[in-house]
Structures are given as structure tokens and as C-alpha cells.
Design a protein around this nucleic acid. Sequence first.
DNA 1: TTGTATGCGTTATCAT
DNA 2: ATGATAACGCATACAA
Lengths: 340, 340
Amino acid sequence: MVTIEQVAQHAGVSVATVSRTLNNSPAVKAATAQRVRQAIEELRYVPNQPARNLRRNESQVILALAPNFSNPYYSRILTGIGDRAWELEYSVLVCNTLGHANSELRFLKMLESHQADGAILLGCHWDYGWLARFAQQSHIVQCCEYVPDLACPSVSIDNYAATREMVAYLQGLGHSRIAMIGADNQYISTRLRRQGYLDILAEAGLEPRAELYRLADAEYSFASGLAAAQELLAETPRPTAIFCVSDILALSVISAAQELGLDVPGDLTVTGFDDVDYTTIVHPYLTTVSQPCHEMGRRSVDLLLDGLQNGKAVPSERTFLPHRLMKRESAAPPKFAETI
Amino acid sequence: MVTIEQVAQHAGVSVATVSRTLNNSPAVKAATAQRVRQAIEELRYVPNQPARNLRRNESQVILALAPNFSNPYYSRILTGIGDRAWELEYSVLVCNTLGHANSELRFLKMLESHQADGAILLGCHWDYGWLARFAQQSHIVQCCEYVPDLACPSVSIDNYAATREMVAYLQGLGHSRIAMIGADNQYISTRLRRQGYLDILAEAGLEPRAELYRLADAEYSFASGLAAAQELLAETPRPTAIFCVSDILALSVISAAQELGLDVPGDLTVTGFDDVDYTTIVHPYLTTVSQPCHEMGRRSVDLLLDGLQNGKAVPSERTFLPHRLMKRESAAPPKFAETI
DNA sequence: TTGTATGCGTTATCAT
DNA sequence: ATGATAACGCATACAA
């Protein structure tokens, strides 16, 4: 391995001068810099980044903790994070936590051992105490999900508003028997969507009915969606619309409906959430809420590095990015006037 | 920050002893080790990993270069890589190359700057010369794709055999007018699948017809698959089966067929490749080739670390893992006897 | 403008 | 079994 010292000898200068040249210090004469650069070229010298980082006490690495990378929703955010980090010359260590708290903890400990300068969390457990500790001692930003009372910046859409918009749209279409499939987890998005659904129903003077609210599992799995859908479609009278908290769940509802010979949206309106890839692969194209995943990832990086570079000053604690209601084929007015 | 020195003072020993304790050296008396551990506990000492790495000249990090993370096929492999690395206490830097050669190069340079100990490549350009250089100087393994004449271990399925199996299965079903949608890239998998298709046709005494072989774009995009499918379905006589080199392309064919009022598999047999998530979301469930993505990822890590730890001795240059033919709903015998 | 010397937090060599 | 000390490769305060 060729070191800075050999470059110095070859160029006939001291290691300090080489180091200055490497770091573009203006204090080095152009001619000298030229000689140094030539020596670097000739010896094919490549700086040892860990050594530099040790000295500077930084790693140029950020962590991105995600419950999985199979979900295209997370994939997109991670892509955004990667893109922005690439531009800013940071590396991103993508950590697949599998939703396990102990995995999250082990990954976050890389902050303490100086293997990473900061972390972006996309969905993380918070009921263990250690999250608050890390948020205090380290640079962390939350993306898409956030813990309400955690002093840690976040980037997400306004889930409450988006849900209200979607359900109001269904009401506008003429639906009043609107069911919902939520998820069996404690994510803030899940809670806000549930609240938005309940509130908008209440405002329309509709009593929320327990039998119209079902839960898929924590990971929004297709199978659990199918089960919830089957229960919902067995109700009498049947709901005329089903609002799902994820696209994959909406697809499972469509599947269950077709199994029963029901036409979507003719006999049943179905809506999803997130607008991931497979919403427009098969008809009916899904009516859903589009999240700016890529941009959310990018903003998270910017927020994190702001904190890293300008002390701990973060622009605002909660950043909400605009969502979009994607009106496509899976939602339509109910066929017949309904009786409640 | 608390350092090894402070721990040493607190425990009344030298830094050497603390270091030995940290590394479980048997040369330290149990009682002393106990004192040290207590000091570590009390001071909440966390070793500085970069400093250790500098000294040991390693990083405990491996690179994983993928053309994107959106494709669930890559996601699964990356998950396998991450899982195995986690078990072996390595971190993985997931690099989204976007299929750009300059991105690949920049990421691979992290090997030279000691930011990573090795790399796993899932699809990478090889026509620039530098790949051979890295393969020589660094520890690299190729996963799912490989460059035939590159002296670098690889893990993949046997694409040629898998394709022959699939097309033979279609022939067994009674098809003889079998079209293929390939992809406009130079991946070894693409080339072997094409060759397998041509060979098995030839062996059945069928002349390959140029109009039955179409190309999707390099990334197997749904849109490009749709275009290829439309061309194919406009042929007369129409092919009775279409073999696609990716599941997403198969879905696009089904979509195009339905657009024309054709039933799959009644009027047209369609098969995919990879067996990713969305093959069983909507009917007809896709007949496809299943790849052991997760295991391929894991094996890549094992292979890489074997090379890292036991010198450069790798068990074998080309590792082929078993694939599986998934016979589901999208393939069936042709409706009518055909005339060639 | 450039060089000398010290330190970043470890591990490892050589004593004892 | 333990301690003193020299690296590891680089950046920087201070001198010149």
C-alpha cells in the first residue's frame, strides 16, 4: 500500500504539504500542488479513508434502518436516501431490521462505536427507552413514521389529511357504507389514518361501525388482507367501499371480491395507499394516495446532514411533504342507492 | 468520548490488558478481566471501531452493488446478503448503481480507499477494463450474473438448464409455436436463456423464427414488455405460448392479451422467470422459474468472506444453485391442434 | 508557503 | 500475566 509519506518523498515535500494538497488547502503554492498531484498520479496513491476519518472523528457513513427491503415503499425511500447521499459523498449502510427491536438496537450501536455519523429510521420500535437515548446523543431523523413525543426531526406526509381527503372523495362519490382495513401495528401512520377515517365519518353524521373496521397484520401481508376482506364482504349489508391502508391490501380486497364474482368498481369500490409499482399493472388500476417516497428519502438525508454539519440546528421538527390523491379505476359511485 | 486509556486507569491496569480483555485473549487472568469488564460497564465504554480497523487494516464492511433496489428480485438477494452479513458481524454498504458504469466504478473505488473489504456484484458492466483490475486486486464475488471469462467466483442458477426445462415443459403441453421475449442487455442470464430457448427448439426440429423472438428493454420494464407482447400477438398465426425472461414481462403479456380479449391460459400460455412476489397476487397465477434468491445472497457472502479470511482460496469458480419450475395457472395445453 | 511534531484510539511486539 | 511503547495513515497546531 502506498501512503502519504511515500507521496511526500516522491514529490520532495513533507507529508503536511501532501495532506494540504489533498484537502485543497489554499495555502499551498500552485506549482507545489502540481508536483504533488503528479506524484499521486505516478504512485497511484489512494488516501486511506478510515485513517482520515479517525483523525477527523467522522465516518462519512449514515445508517438507514428499514423493517425490510422487500416492500417497494421502503425500496423507493431507500433509493432516495442513496441518491442524495451519493451526491453528498456519503455512504449509506442499509440495515434490514426485520422489525426486530434487538436488530434495531444493534444497528444503532454503530453510532456509538463511530461506524456511522447519523441514522435515518423508517419505522422503528420506540417503547424500549433506548430510542430516546440515541435521539439525544446522536444524529437521527425519522422518515415516513415518527414517534410523536420524540425530540427528533421527521419527514413524512400528513397521513391524517390524506385519509380524510380519500374518504371524503368516496363520500362524494355517493358511498356511505365505507369499510376500512387497517394494520395491526402502532405506526403513527396507521393511527392517523384510522383517526382520519373515524373523524370524517363522524363529520358526515355516520356512526362508525365496529364490524366495518378490520385489521391486517403488522406487515400488511397479502394473506392477512385477504382474510380481512373476506370477513368484510360477508357482512350484510355489504360495504360499498373499502379503504385500505396499503396498496397490497387493496389488491387482496380486489382478489377476494373477484373470487366472489363481484366487479370492482362496479359492485365494490376499493382504495389503497402509497401508490407503489403494482398499482397500475393490472386492471382495475388502483385509486390510491401517492407519497413522494423518493423525495422523502432525499429530504431525510439533507435534514440529517444539516444536523451533522451545523451543530444540532434542524429547520423544523416535523416536515410534511405533499401527497396526491390518485383517482384511477378502482373507485366509482355505488351502483344502487343504499339504505343505511 | 471514553477511550481505552480511561478504562485502563479506572481498572488499574494498562491499555494492553484492556485491549486483551476486549479481544478475549486467554492470556489475561480471570480476576483481572473481571475488573476490566466492570470498568467498561461503569464508564459505558464503547470501542472505537474505526481505530481498531485502522490498526488491523480492515473495515468489516462489504459492498453490494445492485442496478437498483426497486426490483424485488434484487431486493431478495440483498436481503439474503444482509442476513448473512449480520450473522457474521459484517456491515453491508448497499450501492445503487442505477446501471451506470461510472457509479459502479466510484463505489468499487471504496475498496481501494479501504472503506470496504470486499464486494458482491449483482449485475455490473465489464466492458471497461477496470472490472478485471478490481477482480485481481480485491475480493469480489458475482451474484446472479457473471462475466464468463472473469477470474472471480460467482453464485447463480443454471439459466441455460432452467430455460430448457421450461420450454420443454411447454412443448410437452403440446405447444410448438412458442415465442420468447428477451431483454436488450448483455447479462449472461439473458444470453443463456436465449440460447436455451433456441437449442431446445432446434432439438425438437423446429426452425427458430425471428418474428417470434422480441426484446424488452434492458430493465425488463412493464411498458417495453407490453410493446413486445402487442407485436407478438399481432402475428399470424399467433403464437400459442410466450416464454418471458422475467415475471414482470409475463404480467405485461397477460395484460396485453386481456386487452385483446384473449384468455390466459385458454387462448395463450405465458410463463415468467424469477418467481418474485407478484406472481401469485392476481389470477392467473404465473407459471415461472423460481430462483433461490435469498440463498444466493447468503452464499455470496460466505464465498466472499472465505476469500477474505483464508487468503484467496475460493472453493470453486462457478457455483450453481438449484432452481425450481413453478407450474401454476398461466400455462396449459393449446386449445386446438396447430398447423405450423 | 512549507516543515516538524503530536495525536486520533487501537492493536501488537517485546520486555518483564 | 502484565506493562511500556511503537506502529496504523492521516490532519493539524505551531514553528519557521
